[in-house]
Design a protein around this nucleic acid. Structure first.
Lengths: 336, 336
DNA sequence: AAAACATACTTAATCGTTTTCGTGTTTTAA
DNA sequence: TTAAAACACGAAAACGATTAAGTATGTTTT
C-alpha cells in the first residue's frame, strides 16, 4: 500500500505538500502539483478513506434504508428501480451507497441511527422501510441529512409518487371507457394506500360514480393469493363490478387468474387495472392497464436533493417533491 | 458525539481501559468492564468506524460489484435475489454492504480495484458484472478476498448455479413429455450460456435426439423483443420445433407473445420453457415450465464463503460451489 | 531601501481508536 | 517471608490523512 509518505519521499517534499497537491490547493506551485500527481499515479497511490473521513468528518458515503419485513426489499420492482436510479445518480455525484441495517436480528445489535453514526454517513435515504418503526423516526429526527421516498415526515425532504393524480387518471380513464361499477382492492395501511384510496373515492364522487362499500376491499401489496381471494369475493357479489383496480401489477396477476379460472375473459367480460407499470406487464395477454410510476425520476430527485442537502444545507429547500406517473392504457380495460 | 474520552473521564479510567472494556479484553476487571459498558450505553456512545478501521485495517464492509451495461443490474430478478440473500447473510455476520462502482462515468475516476482500496473493503463479491472487463480481472487478481457469482476465475472462490444439471433436467423432462424436436434460443456469450448450451447438446445426444442447426439461435438475456423475433424464425421453419427453450423466463414471455399472435396455443400447439424461475412465472397462463435457480442458496453460500475467506484465510477451501436449481414443471410444456 | 505582500513550502497538531509495553498491586508458591 | 506469577490498569505511539500556522524566499509598493 503506497502512502502519501512514500510519494513525499519520492518527490522530496513534505507530506503536507503531497496532500495539498492531490487536493489541488492553491498554495502549491503548478509544476510541483503536476509532478506530485504524476508520481502518485506512477506509484499507484490510493487514498485511504478511513483516514480522510477521520480528519474531515466526511465519508462521501450515503446510507440507504432498504428493508422489508418479508425480505422482499430488493426483489420489489418499484423499490429496486428507485434504488437503482438513486444509486446511479448518487455515484455520479461522488457518493457511495451502503445499506443501513438495524441489526435487529444480528449479533452486534445497532439501531438504524447508531449504524449511521458508526459509519459516519453524510446522508441517508429511506427508500424502503416501515415508516411507523420508531427506529426510522429516530433516524429521521436525528439531524442527519435525510430524504424519504413515498412517505412524508414533517420538515424533511420527501420524494413521493403522485398517487392522487395517478389514481385520478386511472379511474378517469376507466370511467371514460364506460365503466360505472368499479371496485378497488387496495393495499394495507400506509400513506401511499391512503393517498390512492382517498383519490379513488374523491374522483369517483367527482365523476358522479357511486362506490358501494362492498366494492372496496383490503388486500396487501404484491400478494397474488390475497388478490385472488378478493377477486373471487367481488365476482361472487350479486352485482359484481365491471372493472377491478388492484394495489399493484403483481396483485393484478393474481386477480387475472381468478377471473380466467371462472372462464371469464379480460377485458370482454371484466376489466382490470394494476398500478406500478412493471416491465412484464407490457408483455402480458392482455397488456395490463396501469399507472407507470416514474421510478427513474424518483431516484434521481432523491439523490439530487440529498446531495444538495449535504453540500448546501442552508440553501436547500426542504420540500416535498411529487413525481407524476403516467397512464399506460394497455388492453386490460375495455370499452363498456 | 460522545467519545471514548468522555466515557473515560466519566468513569475515572484511561481511554485505553475503555477501549479494552468495550472490546472485552481479558486484562480488565469484570466489574470495571460492566461499569464502563453501562456508562457507555447511558451516555449514548457510538464508535467511529473510520478511526477503528484506520487502526485495525478492518472495515467490516464488503464491496459488491453490481453493474450492468444496460443499467439493469438491480432490476434483474436473478441478480437482485442473489444480492438480497447475500446482503442478509453478510449482515448477519456483522458486515455491511457497499456498492463498488468503477466511476467510469464519474468525476472522480477510479477503477474497481482503486475503489476497493480506497474504501478498504475486507472482501468483495462480484455478483453482476462483465467478467471480461479488465477492471474485473484486476480486482479478482488483486489478492483481496473475493467470491464471484456465476463465473469461475482460476484459484478464486466461485458460486455458480448448476447450469449443466439444470439444462439436462429441463431437456430430459421435455423429452419425457414426448418432444423430439426441441429448439433452444440461448443467451449471448458467457460462461453461463456456454454451460447451458453444451449441456443442451450433450443431453440431446444422450437422449438420441437430433438437433438441427437451425433450431439453435442466439438472442440475449431478458430481451423480449429478440426472443419474439427468434421465435418467429423458428415458427417459419419448414419443420418447426414442438418445443422452444428460452434463455430466461423473461424472454419466454416474448416468445409466448409471438406464438399467441399466430393463433397458436401453449402447450397444445407448441410448448415452451424458460429458465430462472422468477416469481411471476407461476402466475401466468399457462404456468411457465422452467428451472428455478436457487438464488437464496447462491447468495448465502457467497456470503458464508467470503466471510470465511476473510476471517480464516488459511483454512478456507478455495473451491467452486455449484448450487442446483430445481425443475418447476408448470404447464407450458405439454405431452406430445 | 525598507515595508508590505505574495508565493511555495514545512512543521506539527489533530481526528478517535487500538495496542504494545510498562507499572503497581495482589495472589500464589516455595 | 519472599520471589515469582497473575491481575488490572495506564502512557504513549501508532494508523494515514488534513490543515492552521509558521517560515523562507522572491516581488511589489512607496
Amino acid at each position: 500500500m503506497v502512502l502519501m509518505k512514500d510519494i513525499a519521499a519520492a518527490c522530496g517534499v513534505s507530506i503536507a505538500t503531497v496532500s495539498k497537491a492531490l487536493n489541488n490547493h492553491s498554495d502549491i506551485g503548478e509544476e510541483t502539483k503536476e509532478h506530485i500527481r504524476n508520481v502518485a499515479k506512477e506509484m499507484g497511490y490510493s487514498p485511504n478513506s478511513a483516514a480522510k473521513a477521520l480528519k474531515t468528518n466526511r465519508t462521501y458515503n450515503i446510507g440507504v434504508v432498504f428493508s422489508h419485513e418479508d425480505q422482499s426489499g430488493l426483489t420489489h420492482d418499484f423499490f429496486a428501480h428507485v434504488l437503482d436510479s438513486f444509486k446511479n445518480h448518487a455515484e455520479q455525484k461522488g457518493y457511495d451507497i451502503t445499506f443501513i441495517n438495524s441489526g435487529k436480528h444480528e449479533m452486534r445489535k445497532m439501531s438504524y441511527l447508531d449504524h449511521c453514526r458508526y459509519r459516519g454517513f453524510d446522508g441517508v435515504a429511506v427508500i424502503c422501510a416501515n415508516f411507523y418503526d420508531s427506529e426510522v423516526e429516530d433516524l429521521v429526527k436525528s439531524g442527519i441529512p435525510v430524504v424519504t421516498v413515498d412517505h412524508v415526515f414533517h420538515d424533511r425532504i420527501a420524494i413521493t409518487s403522485d398517487n392522487v393524480k395517478g389514481m385520478r387518471d386511472l379511474l378517469t380513464y376507466i370511467y371514460e371507457q364506460g365503466h360505472r361499477k368499479v371496485a378497488y382492492i387496495h393495499g394495507v395501511t400506509s400513506s401511499v394506500s391512503q393517498g390512492r384510496l382517498t383519490s379513488f373515492y374523491y374522483t369517483a364522487e367527482e365523476l358522479g360514480m357511486h362506490v358501494p362499500d362492498e366494492y372496496v376491499l383490503e388486500a396487501a401489496y404484491r400478494d397474488t393469493k390475497k388478490a385472488y381471494e378478493m377477486t373471487e369475493k367481488l365476482l361472487d357479489l350479486p352485482d359484481p363490478p365491471t372493472c377491478i383496480c388492484y394495489p399493484d401489477d403483481f396483485s393484478a396477476f393474481g386477480g387475472m387468474n381468478a377471473i380466467k379460472e371462472r372462464g371469464l375473459s379480460i377485458p370482454e367480460d371484466i376489466s382490470i387495472a394494476g398500478y406500478d407499470g412493471i416491465r412484464i406487464g407490457r408483455h402480458l395477454e392482455p397488456q395490463l392497464t396501469t399507472i407507470r410510476q416514474d421510478t427513474a425520476e424518483i431516484g434521481r430527485q432523491a439523490a439530487e436533493k440529498l446531495v444538495s442537502l449535504i453540500e448546501r444545507p442552508k440553501s436547500t429547500l426542504i420540500e416535498q417533491v411529487v413525481v407524476e406517473g403516467i397512464l399506460f392504457k394497455g388492453k386490460s380495460v375495455g370499452k363498456k
